[in-house]
């Protein structure tokens, strides 16, 4: 059974799908499947200075990250999207992406552990 542990919270998720544990498990599983390819795309785009693509991916996954309340991740992703969309502070983008990927990866790892 998944519980609300430190790096993320399931409260918002329960608000969307109700308290059915099966629904929550399925949605966590779906998140674990769908987020890693997006993180890979984010890293590759940042490495290749494809800032529009970084902004697009950040924009796309932002609501999902928000649903899990992954610690500090939402603020980083907002900053990333803003910088890339406006072409500001682009030298910080790679570092922000790394930091984001690390925080989400930790959360994913805990989720996987609890699913098992």
């Amino acid at each position: 059974m998944i519980t609300s542990s430190k790096p993320y919270s399931l409260n918002k998720l329960s608000g969307f799908v109700g308290d059915d544990p099966q629904q929550i498990l399925e949605m966590v599983d779906l998140f674990i499947q769908t987020i890693p390819p997006e993180l890979t795309l984010l890293k590759n785009s940042a490495s290749n200075n494809l800032y529009d693509e970084v902004a697009t991916v950040a924009h796309r996954i932002k609501p999902s990250i928000d649903v899990f309340d992954i610690r500090d991740a939402l603020q980083i992703i907002r900053t990333l999207e803003l910088f890339c969309r406006n072409g500001q502070n682009l030298h910080q983008v790679s570092a922000l992406v790394d930091e984001l990927v690390e925080k989400i990866s930790i959360a994913l790892e805990v989720m996987r552990g609890e699913l098992d």
Partner: peptide, 11 residues
Amino acid sequence: DRFYGELLKRH
């Protein structure tokens, strides 16, 4: 976003 779409659908 497949995850977010599924979330809205189930809601």
